[in-house]
Simulated scan of single mutants.
Amino acid sequence: MSDQTFPSRVFSGIKPSGGLTLGNYLGAIQRWVDMQEDPTFETIFCVVDMHAITVWQDPADLTRATREVAAAMIASGIDPERSILFNQCRVPAHAELGWLLSCVARVGWMNRMTQFKDKAGKNTEKVSLGLYAYPALMAADILAYHATHVPVGEDQKQHVELTRDIAAKFNHDYGVDFFPMTEPVIEGPAMRVMNLRDGSKKMSKSGESDMERINMLDDADTISKKFKKARTDPEALPSEMDGLAERPEARNLVNIYAGLAGMSSQAVLGEYGGAGWGTFKPALAELAVEKLAPVSDEMRRLLNAPDEIDALMARGAERAAAVAEPILAETFRIMGFVR
């Protein structure tokens, strides 16, 4: 192998399969905004709409959800001029490279993907082939841009490891040093935002009660109400994180405060240790409204101007294709295709 160097390039995406929550904001979008500010990175962010159809999507819902994700990114601070922002289906290189990499990936690797097992459950014979094979498309999303860094939640780390396996096998099989060994970037106190009613469960857009989650389109009054009514326990906040080990709801709210304030969870306890929930929850609600209400307001403005969103994504797709198409063309050449 040669000692080829790759530019520091970030790729990540969100699937448009329903309303966005605070978990998407703290676990992904806010971190992307921070990476956009780092001059050492080129940043590429994608609405991965082709992943959404691994399960049935109503066409009108997919259209709406795609624009909602793009609006959330823009409203949160992703600048379409400084970062490349687009929706996946506009760049055919994703699907084309996805097929090529499907022929590099091994069935045994796919069988180890825990997310397929979680989503398919006992119904594996009736789910779509796409739900089984989509990790190869996810690898293509990343490798089409020679992305070196992928900010992900802990539950997505396995997919980046698969991407590395596919890249390594491709490089080995063809005797090249073409695809980089992408690094997952996992950091931040609120990487895994939990349910406001049950701290043992991840915050989800599909939960039974709307009070379990903060939706990115919630207005200021709703955000405040949900945090003030969030489940807690009778004890005051401790001064050290060890004191939250067996207190999942308390730990979740402290982590959310830390994520919104841009500080460590321990620093939050340094400020609020010994305080009761009558003090902390109103402070958290005030902070959340300060940070999130302007985002939801701008999202609503953008969603009322869908042509503006579509034009921004179309321009982003042109820029994305300019990066991906030469990489795809070289992949075809390496593999021996006559084009």
Rank of each mutant, 00 (worst) to 15 (best):
D49Q: 07
S265L: 03
S264P: 11
A314V: 12
A236G: 04
A275Y: 13
A285I: 07
S12Q: 09
N255T: 13
G121K: 05
A311N: 09
N171T: 13
A250D: 14
L129W: 00
V338W: 12
I29W: 03
R82N: 13
E183Y: 00
S265Y: 05
V289Y: 04
R301P: 11
V107W: 15
G207P: 07
A317H: 02
R67W: 12
A75G: 03
L237C: 03
D3G: 15
M35H: 09
M263D: 13
L328I: 05
R339L: 14
R31W: 12
K117F: 01
S264L: 07
L284M: 08
E183F: 00
I53H: 01
T5N: 09
L101T: 06
A236K: 13
A311V: 10
S200L: 06
A105N: 10
E161G: 00
P248D: 13
P92E: 04
R213S: 15
D297Y: 02
G243V: 04
N171E: 05
Q115L: 08
E187S: 14
Y134G: 05
L260C: 04
A267F: 07
S239T: 15
M194I: 06
A305L: 14
D218C: 02
V150T: 06
E290C: 05
E96N: 04
S265N: 09
A329E: 11
W109L: 04
A324C: 01
V47Y: 09
V152P: 03
R82Y: 08
S209V: 02
G188A: 07
L292Y: 10
G130S: 12
A314E: 14
L26R: 01
A95D: 01
K228G: 10
T54M: 09
A321H: 10
F179H: 01
P189L: 09
A275P: 02
R213F: 02
V91G: 06
G188N: 05
L131N: 10
P238N: 04
A168F: 08
L196H: 06
R90W: 10
W99V: 13
R82Q: 15
N215F: 15
I256H: 02
D155W: 00
A314Y: 00
T114K: 07
V289C: 08
D141E: 02
L22W: 09
R31V: 11
T21G: 04
T40E: 01
P59V: 06
G19D: 12
M203N: 06
R301M: 11
A293W: 08
L312G: 12
F280Q: 10
R9D: 08
L137I: 09
D3P: 03
K225S: 14
L328C: 01
F116P: 01
M181N: 02
T5K: 13
A250K: 08
N255K: 15
L162K: 07
P16C: 03
D49F: 06
R106W: 07
Y257D: 01
L131F: 10
K291H: 08
D310N: 14
E330V: 04
T232I: 11
D61C: 13
P80K: 06
V127P: 10
V338N: 09
L312S: 13
M35R: 12
L85K: 05
